[in-house]
């Protein structure tokens, strides 16, 4: 199993697009904190930004494009053709010849993805929060370790969500479009919370409440419940994806 995970890690980190995801995801949040520093200071001084407990943590949400890309391409790269000679041939054929047990393959892929994204999230969270402390230390309280851990969990679950959807669609464009649109400032999920209170239980809205306190949502969910709701979504979608992956021909 260890060698399988190592193989999957190597495969993932050998993709140029994976590095786009890694670099983009890791740098975006700290850069935003840095660029926004003058505005944030002015807002704190003017008294328009009173609740500073989310400072830094909120910015972490912007880097989510990184884990999304990683989660999608772990799967979609298997479905791209290997060359013009045989338009039917895909990398997955090679993969499954090397690892015929699809269950073991999925387990290895999932582990590799979790390792990469959790590491990325830890680095990003450390950089973003340290930067926030340096820039606005006197106003922003040091966030509790549990909230930082929850933010890292949120990143990992988001990557797994992207991964599960791609397992179902077998195509990277659909989940990427869906997820990137939904990570924009006014996300579709947020729009839906204006229509029905149930939307508060959508994975991204619920998940964010694990570590963000002052969220504009119709139903407040306690951090632990929020984590469970998001995990339930991920587990359910992963189960569907795994069953399909198991049943379908390559």
């Amino acid at each position: 199993m260890v060698s399988l995970v190592r193989a999957e890690l190597r495969k993932l980190l050998g993709l140029p697009t994976a590095w786009i995801g890694l670099v983009l995801g890791t740098l975006t949040a700290p850069v935003i904190v840095l660029l926004n520093a003058p505005y944030t200071r002015r807002a704190i001084a003017a008294g328009t930004l009173t609740d500073t407990t989310d400072l830094g943590l909120r910015d972490l949400g912007i880097g989510l494009i990184g884990p999304m890309i990683l989660g999608v391409i772990v799967v979609s790269s298997e479905y791209t053709s290997t060359g013009p000679d045989a338009p039917g041939a895909r990398q997955l054929t090679t993969t499954l010849t090397a690892v015929p047990s699809r269950r073991r393959l999925l387990a290895a892929k999932t582990t590799a993805l979790i390792l990469v994204v959790a590491a990325q999230a830890a680095v990003t969270a450390a950089a973003t929060l340290t930067l926030t402390q340096v820039l606005h230390g006197e106003h922003a309280p040091t966030p509790a370790p549990a909230r930082v851990a929850a933010a890292i969990l949120y990143w990992t679950l988001t990557a797994l969500l992207a991964y599960a959807i791609t397992l179902i669609t077998r195509n990277g464009i659909v989940p990427l479009t869906l997820l990137i649109i939904n990570s924009s400032v006014v996300s579709v999920s947020y729009l839906l919370t204006k229509v029905t209170d149930l939307a508060a239980y959508l994975p991204d809205i619920a998940g964010a409440q694990m570590f963000i306190r002052s969220a504009d949502v119709p139903v407040e969910i306690a951090p632990l419940t929020a984590g469970l709701v998001m995990t339930a979504w991920v587990v359910a979608l992963l189960a569907v994806g795994a069953v399909l992956f198991h049943r379908r021909d390559v």
Binding site: T17, I32, L35, Y39, I65, L176, I180, S184
Partner: peptide, 23 residues
């Protein structure tokens, strides 16, 4: 290539754009 192009365009339209506009 489709996936990198989609990431680039949607990233600009839905993530970078709103940030620039907010500033």
């Amino acid at each position: 290539r489709a996936v990198p192009a989609v990431v680039l365009l949607l990233g600009l339209y839905f993530i970078a754009g709103p940030l620039l506009r907010a500033r």
